[in-house]
Every structure is written in structure tokens, then in C-alpha cells.
């Protein structure tokens, strides 16, 4: 056996876990779910081919479907940009040369390590209408009590607010990015007589665009799959105002055992996420700056 042949055999042996894993737990199920999306499949009986009917029902006669799309879209379109900006501001603050930064970094990051279920329980209580801490503060400041999750008008906005508590994860990524910007760039800028604002807009922001881009893509993908908030805190209510896409998918699959319909929903989500990601990647040529292009 020559060395090239040996390397091929050994290479595949080494990566065999992930090759098998991708085939068994990713690609296989993906194709199966694509097939299932064209069937009626109540789990205990065999799937029955019904063509495009799941998709037609989903798009035309299921009003909850568009509500779920709307809720998820609004949530993604508000929580992702707010989170990006919030995390960025915190990272900028932490990148200042003042003492005690480690303490503040820990404080901001701490909520991001709290298990999601614990933070949901906590926020459900903080935002309780009658006994919650936030309403205590609001009343103290002379405002009226706020209903948060109890009213259709405010439930989704409350979830967006709640999501901002966890921006520490994105913040750490920005901080790593900020610390990777060479000091020489700023020195050169200062020599040319640039003021702080100019340094920020012409050096910091462009150098950070790849990191912002990464956080944007990951944030969008995560937001499109929001589930727990609604499942644990509101069950999608009141009046379907927090009826997230994945909550509907979960109900279809596991409460009503409509596996075919749920698969169709999953594939539509994949399609939308794919289009969104492609759009973001396409747009990145306009606003994301890669050093390598200049050198």
C-alpha cells in the first residue's frame, strides 16, 4: 500500500465518527423529513403520500401559520438588532482603559451562563404583574403597573426585553474582536489628526464588521428557532401574541402527531433561514471589511 492510499484510508478512519454522524443524524433525517413533508403521517400508521397538500394547507387555510411567522419575524427583527447594538456598546465600555474591568466583564457575562430555564422562571417572576420587582420599580417612579406577559400588546415586547439580559455572550465575542484590532492603526490615525469619533467610525467599526457579521448570522438563526420562552412562559398566548413558529411546529408534531405537517413546517423554516443567510452573506460584500482584501 503506497503512502497516499494509506493516508486516505487512515484519514477516513479518523473522521469516520463525524462522517457516520452526519449520515445517520443529519443528512439521512433531512432527506426523510423532506419526504415526510409530502405525506400524512400520524406516527402510528405508515406515511401516506398526499403530494403538496401539507404546504397548501399551511399557506392558505391555516391562519395560525401566518401568525406564527409574523411573531417570529417581529421577534427576530427587534431582538437581534437590539442585542447586537447592546452587546457592542458593552464591549466598547469594557475595552476602555479603566481599572476593575474584570469585575464588570464578569457582571455582564454572568446572565449568559444562567441556564435558560432558570432565567425564564426568574423573569416570569420579575415581570409578574402583581408582585414583580420591575413593577415595584415602575410604581416607585410614578408609573402604572405594567402587564408584561399578561396582555397581547406587551407580551412579545417583554420577551424582547428579556432577551437583552443575555447579550453577554455576544459581548465576549465583540470584546475578543476589539482586542484584536492593532494599536498601530489608532496611532497612525492620531498622527493624521483624527479625533476620537473619526477613529471610532473609520477604524473600530470597519475592523469589527466581520465580528458583527458573525453575530448577526448566528443571532438570526437562533432567533428563528425561539421556542422555550413561549413554551414555558406563555404557551403562545395571550391571543397567540407569542405564538412562535417552533411552538406551532412542536404542537403539530407532539400534541397532534401531525408528523407530515410538522416536517413541511421544518422545511419551510429551513428554506427561509437559508434565503435570509444568503441575503446577509450577499450583502456582506457591501459592508463587511476583510483585511486580507487590502493587503
Amino acid at each position: 500500500m503506497n503512502s497516499r492510499m494509506r493516508d486516505t484510508v487512515q484519514g477516513y478512519l479518523f473522521i469516520s465518527p463525524v462522517v457516520l454522524g452526519l449520515l445517520i443524524f443529519t443528512i439521512g433525517p433531512m432527506l426523510t423529513s423532506f419526504y415526510m413533508s409530502f405525506t400524512k403521517f400520524p406516527l402510528l400508521r405508515a406515511p401516506e403520500w398526499i403530494g403538496l397538500r401539507n404546504y397548501i394547507v399551511m399557506f392558505t387555510s391555516d391562519r395560525n401559520f401566518w401568525q406564527a411567522c409574523k411573531v417570529t419575524l417581529i421577534y427576530a427583527a427587534t431582538s437581534v438588532p437590539l442585542g447586537l447594538v447592546g452587546a457592542f456598546i458593552l464591549a466598547i465600555l469594557l475595552n476602555q482603559r479603566v481599572k476593575g474591568i474584570a469585575f464588570f466583564r464578569t457582571s455582564f457575562y454572568m446572565p449568559a451562563i444562567v441556564p435558560a430555564i432558570a432565567s425564564l422562571i426568574l423573569w416570569g417572576w420579575l415581570m409578574n404583574r402583581d408582585y414583580g420587582l420591575i413593577n415595584a420599580v415602575l410604581v416607585r417612579l410614578g408609573f402604572q403597573k405594567f402587564s408584561f406577559f399578561a396582555e397581547p400588546e406587551t407580551a412579545l415586547a417583554s420577551m424582547v426585553m428579556m432577551s437583552l439580559w443575555g447579550v453577554g455572550a455576544g459581548m465576549i465575542i465583540y470584546l475578543a474582536g476589539l482586542q484584536g484590532i492593532p494599536e498601530s492603526l489608532y496611532e497612525a490615525g492620531k498622527l493624521d489628526g483624527a479625533n476620537e469619533a473619526q477613529l471610532f467610525w473609520n477604524i473600530t467599526i470597519p475592523m469589527m464588521t466581520p465580528t458583527i457579521f458573525f453575530n448577526l448570522v448566528m443571532g438570526l438563526i437562533a432567533a428563528s428557532q425561539t421556542f422555550m420562552n413561549a413554551f414555558v412562559l406563555t404557551s403562545g398566548g395571550p391571543l397567540k401574541s407569542t405564538y412562535f413558529y417552533n411552538l406551532m411546529l412542536y404542537e403539530r408534531a407532539f400534541n397532534w402527531t401531525q408528523m407530515g405537517m410538522a416536517s413541511a413546517m421544518a422545511w419551510f423554516l429551513l428554506f427561509v433561514v437559508l434565503i435570509l443567510t444568503l441575503l446577509v452573506f450577499r450583502s456582506s460584500a457591501l459592508w463587511v471589511f476583510y483585511e486580507a482584501e487590502v493587503r
Partner: peptide
Amino acid sequence: PSTVTLIP
């Protein structure tokens, strides 16, 4: 998105 593989 993990839901694509979830049901199968």
C-alpha cells in the same frame, strides 16, 4: 435549524 432533523 435542528427542527429539520427532529421529526425523523
